[in-house]
Write a protein that binds this DNA or RNA. Structure first.
Lengths: 147, 147
DNA sequence: CGTTTTTATATCGTTTACGATGCAAAGATA
DNA sequence: TATCTTTGCATCGTAAACGATATAAAAACG
């Protein structure tokens, strides 16, 4: 069996890639009920935590480039979830704010998502301690690799 | 602090999402040297393990839909990395085979990727045991959520 | 103050992902 | 065997990601 290091089964990266897509897919039915996508949900979580952030703030928080976030926000603005207004002090900045609709989604998300994901993962043999381990290991990878 | 369950920092999903993108980005310089993308690299790993698989085989192995894999293979065929030929017994099937160029990439990948990723992750505090834990936890999530 | 550089965002092109749908070949059934 | 269903793949539309590039405003500098 040649080049064992290259084999798919030994790869952390493929597992991350697969697990990420599967978890995102598990979110999808709940997010459909909210009328949003997973990356849009991430933006909303950032804004629910602190409203009125700039494109850069949001991008840094999500470890994304602004050229990913800008079109995402444009779509969310078109859907009436957020507004974008130029900064007063610094006219280059776009201040992103939740609309009433965007604020209401937090309560609906809170109703649907923890319960829905709990259901979806109820058959998963991982304990709370395992999830904490997992979080720690992922954080180690993230802080090593993030710029 | 309202709705703590929704907070970004508590989310495994965001960590997976971020770690996956960062690791994929870490692969990118090496993969650029091979002239391929990360999903194309995944397809090659599947074919290096066993040449001559169908679109369905590859999609199942990568937990992707065929409507993702088909265009990916079309691009790889255009680049001369693989060929696609209709199955003889079953003319619906496309048999995907490595070209000489696709086979050669395995050696180059073996030269570049383990070393390159080792470098990139050398500052990561995780031990081999941690990576094994991580793999196990990801496998648990994957097998719970995969259809 | 005028010029240069940096910063914040936007635009463009390419490649993934994936839901929805189409289509032809194979298999199942009456 | 004729029809119905399933299977394997392809096509289309939309939304991310992200490299490359553009642009206007702000900051730094001479």
């Amino acid at each position: 069996m040649s080049h064992a290091e290259l084999q798919l089964n030994n790869q952390i990266c493929f597992r991350l890639y697969a697990a990420t897509r599967l978890i995102t897919q598990a979110y999808t039915p709940m997010l459909n009920a909210l009328g949003i996508t997973y990356p849009q949900y991430l933006v909303l979580m950032v804004l629910w935590e602190q409203d009125g952030q700039t494109v850069n703030d949001i991008a840094h928080r999500l470890l994304l480039e602004t050229n990913t976030v800008t079109p995402l926000l444009q779509r969310m603005e078109k859907q009436g979830i957020v507004t974008r207004t130029r900064g007063e002090k610094d006219k280059r900045q776009q201040i992103v704010s939740l609309t009433d609709q965007g604020k209401k989604l937090e309560d609906i998300a809170y109703e649907l998502i923890p319960a829905g994901m709990g259901d979806r993962l109820s058959a998963c043999p991982l304990e709370l301690a395992d999830y904490k381990h997992l979080a720690g290991e992922l954080d180690a990878i993230i802080s090593t690799l993030k710029h």
